[in-house]
């Protein structure tokens, strides 16, 4: 399931946005290969799930995913990304999405999830209109709306 979600998400997250996400210094421009693009998408999916659970009042679960997301992006910004490193993260994100799909997707949960993705992107430098489009696109992919 996660591979299908990642493929669909590639239509939403372009290379320019992925590049700014995986760089913590605008002076270090990394070339976006497949692994880094997948890393950037996994980070956004984690952020989405974190916001979604918080919007449902499941604060601990949301915070736990938020913490994992922050640790993950810190790691991929500092070192080379390999499939071996991405595989367990994919499993983790897949489990979070499955759990999210079992919940009642309230307006507040979707709104918090999308805000979480938007703010992450805008903070990295992505123009807000695109951040909004990406967040909505991920909602459609994750929740099937």
């Amino acid at each position: 399931m996660i591979e299908s979600i990642l493929e669909q998400s590639k239509t939403q997250v372009d290379k320019a946005s992925a590049t700014v996400l995986v760089s913590d210094d605008p002076r270090m421009k990394r070339f976006i290969g497949e692994a880094l693009l997948v890393g950037a998408i996994l980070y956004l999916l984690q952020q989405y799930c974190s916001g979604f659970f918080k919007g449902l009042g499941l604060d601990d679960l949301g915070e736990s995913h938020g913490k994992k997301a922050r640790q993950f992006i810190k790691r991929i910004r500092k070192s080379k990304v390999t499939n071996e490193y991405l595989d367990p993260v994919k499993k983790d994100v897949e489990a979070a999405i499955q759990k999210a799909r079992q919940q009642d997707a309230t307006d507040l949960a979707v709104s918090k999830a999308e805000s979480s993705v938007q703010e992450t992107l805008v903070e990295a430098g992505v123009v807000r209109a695109q951040a909004v489009d990406i967040a909505r696109g991920l909602s459609g992919i994750i929740l099937g709306e």
Binding site: V20, A124, G125
Partner: peptide, 16 residues
């Protein structure tokens, strides 16, 4: 913010 927007727009130019 300015640095990051500059970064994004440079990348946008390269890719798009």
């Amino acid at each position: 913010k300015v640095e990051n927007l500059g970064f994004w727009v440079e990348e946008w130019f390269c890719h798009k």
